[in-house]
Every structure is written in structure tokens, then in C-alpha cells.
């Protein structure tokens, strides 16, 4: 049989040899080699998938593998947890990574506080209507504390 020999410099020489000698000298059948390459690729892919499922957002517990499957992140902190993985993806989608538009002013979290005040006021007037003065006094104190926050 004829076999091709690939030396270290990438030069291919064809030599005639019998099958037994070829095996003894360590020649590999091309078909087998192809199967091996496929195996290696699958193995690499598995390792990447394994890495993706091990990469988990500390805040919400979403894994990068889950994100890849469903296309949605779990929480704002996912952008920190998966930062290095997301940057190339964001560049592919938007041709840019750095935001240049409007910025958030940092918010003032007044909503929660105002809402609490409104709820307490409502409860207070309810307690007064029910003539539950003990409860009303407690609510009044709580309202004062909340308003001072």
C-alpha cells in the first residue's frame, strides 16, 4: 500500500509500505483521524458548556449556560458576573460596548418612603375611625419616624 508521510516541516512524502509495517511505524488511517478530530471538538464543546453552567451569577443564581439557552439575563448584576463573556456578544449586536446616551441620575428611592407614609396615614385614619386609639397612637409614632427618614 501507499502511505503519505508528513514530516515535522510539513513536507509530504509518499512511500510504499505493507499494512503491517505501516501500523508498526505508527501511521494513522485518515478516517480514524477524522473521527478523532470530531471527538476532540465534542469534548471541547462539552468543556465549554460545563464551564458555562459552572459560571453562575452570585446575585440571582442564573448560570451563563441558562442565559445562552433563553437569551435573557436574570438580574442587573448578571452584567457584572458575566462581564467578560457579554462584552464580545454586545459588540456583535451593537457594534459598540460603551454606552453614550442618557444617564441615570442615581435615583432617590423616594417612592418606597412616600408609599409607606401614605399607607400609614391610611391605616391611621382607619384606626381612628374604628376608635382603636391604642393602635392609632402606635401608627402615629411610626408615621413620624418614617416621615423623618
Amino acid at each position: 500500500m501507499k502511505v503519505s508521510q508528513l514530516d515535522k516541516d510539513g513536507k509530504v512524502t509518499e512511500i510504499s509500505i505493507c499494512a503491517e509495517c505501516a501500523r508498526a511505524r505508527g501511521f494513522t488511517e485518515v478516517e480514524k483521524l477524522k473521527a478523532n478530530v470530531a471527538e476532540i471538538i465534542t469534548e471541547l464543546k462539552n468543556r465549554i458548556d460545563e464551564g458555562d453552567s459552572r459560571l453562575i451569577c452570585r446575585t440571582c443564581g442564573l448560570s451563563y449556560a441558562e442565559f445562552k439557552k433563553q437569551g435573557r439575563l436574570g438580574c442587573a448584576d448578571c452584567y457584572v458576573s458575566f462581564h467578560d463573556q457579554l462584552v464580545p456578544l454586545i459588540r456583535r449586536i451593537h457594534d459598540a460596548v460603551q454606552h453614550v446616551g442618557r444617564t441615570a441620575s442615581g435615583g432617590r428611592k423616594q417612592a418606597q418612603q412616600k408609599m409607606n407614609v401614605a399607607k400609614l396615614r391610611e391605616a391611621l385614619s382607619g384606626a381612628i375611625q374604628d376608635e382603636d386609639y391604642e393602635k392609632a397612637a402606635a401608627l402615629r409614632d411610626q408615621l413620624r419616624r418614617t416621615e423623618e427618614e
Binding site: G71, A76, I90, T103, G107, R108, Q110, A111, K114
Partner: peptide, 27 residues
């Protein structure tokens, strides 16, 4: 709205959205 609540925002990526396709301006 922003006077009343705090948005998820990053200096690098802008307004943070569930899907990266809406990131940045969110617009």
C-alpha cells in the same frame, strides 16, 4: 419616574435590560 425609583444602570453598558439587545439607551 426616576425621581421616584432607582433604575438598574451601569456607566459602561447604560440602562440594564433583561435582553442585551435592548441595552444602553433602552430605546
Amino acid at each position: 419616574l426616576e425621581r421616584q425609583l432607582q433604575y438598574a444602570f451601569s456607566g459602561e453598558f447604560g440602562f440594564l435590560t433583561a435582553c442585551p439587545t435592548n441595552l444602553g439607551t433602552g430605546m
